[in-house]
Amino acid sequence: MQISESNMSGKTTIKGNPSQYVKLNVGGCLHYTTIGTLTKQDTMLRAMFSGRMEVLSDSDGWILIDRCGKHFGTILNFLRDGSVSLPDSTKEIAELLAEAKYYCIAELAESCNKALTKKERAEPICKVPLITSQKEEEDLISSTTKPAIKLLINRHNNKYSYTTASDDNLLKNIELFDKLSLWYSNRVLFLKDVISTSEICCWVFYGHGKKVSEVCCTSIVYATDKKHTKVECPEARIYEETLNILLYESRNAPNQDLMQATSTRGAVTMSSYTSDEEEERTARS
């Protein structure tokens, strides 16, 4: 291997037999490979190790490349084989793409771009599990480190006829749930229950694996001849409970004074009902 070096600057030009090895220090990650691998494809590395470009070296003979070395092993494998398995995560593919562009490895950069495009099409913005059993709900809530919000929605629980605005309010609750799940999916586990028969529309909020509060959106109202089911969408209270549940993101229980200050009700309680309504709810459950 032919090496010419300027002692003042530490710059070196390298040209040698393809079977000869060189030592590379890429951002603190050490690699040992052949000149043949580095010059196998028409890239910036070929220019660096065929004598066309100067490279930096230290006193121990390591060639210094001022880049993050996290993906340099993948770069070398691609140069050796012409193909390589890409990382699973979007973040790491994007990192590898940046390195491929820096070293002017067009084929690898194209593969990364295609993989990112495919992931953008396939990956949902958020995922909302659909509850199919009580045990599944318990397992999901107990296994997550996030606070959780569950919407129980059951339009078919129609023992009594619905009031005029009830259908619209059911849709409003669903739309609000979808909106919140898009906003907070990275911070909160959202669950949807469409099989339970205990309620028609109810929000349940969990922190540290335990139920913290709920907002029941249904009640029984009385007409002259019969009872009706009324569904409401108390947006302000749902927003309030959502903000309160974010206090459970930390491992420590939230400060009760802070909970008191952020609550317009002074305490987390269910909506009140008349005794007749309470009897009706008990009978239905």
Rank of each mutant, 00 (worst) to 15 (best):
M1G: 07
I3H: 04
S6H: 07
P18E: 02
Q20W: 10
Y21I: 11
Y21G: 02
L24M: 08
L24D: 08
N25Q: 11
T39S: 12
A47I: 00
M53P: 00
E54N: 12
S59Y: 09
L64R: 14
I65H: 06
D66Y: 12
R67L: 04
G73N: 07
S83F: 12
T90V: 13
I93A: 01
A98G: 00
N113R: 05
K114I: 15
L116Q: 01
E120A: 15
E123M: 13
P124W: 15
K135W: 08
E137T: 08
E137H: 11
I141H: 04
S142I: 03
S143W: 00
T145V: 11
T145A: 14
L151N: 05
R155Y: 05
T164H: 09
S166P: 12
D167L: 06
N169I: 00
N169A: 00
L171T: 13
K179E: 08
S181G: 02
R187M: 05
V188R: 02
F190Y: 13
S198F: 01
Y206E: 09
H208Q: 10
G209D: 06
G209K: 06
K210G: 01
K211N: 06
V212D: 05
T218Y: 02
T224S: 15
T224R: 13
D225P: 00
D225S: 14
K227W: 00
H228E: 08
T229S: 09
A236C: 08
L243D: 09
Q256E: 11
T262R: 15
T262I: 15
S275L: 11
S275I: 12
D276M: 10
D276H: 10
R281P: 00
T282N: 07
T282M: 03
R284H: 10
S285F: 07
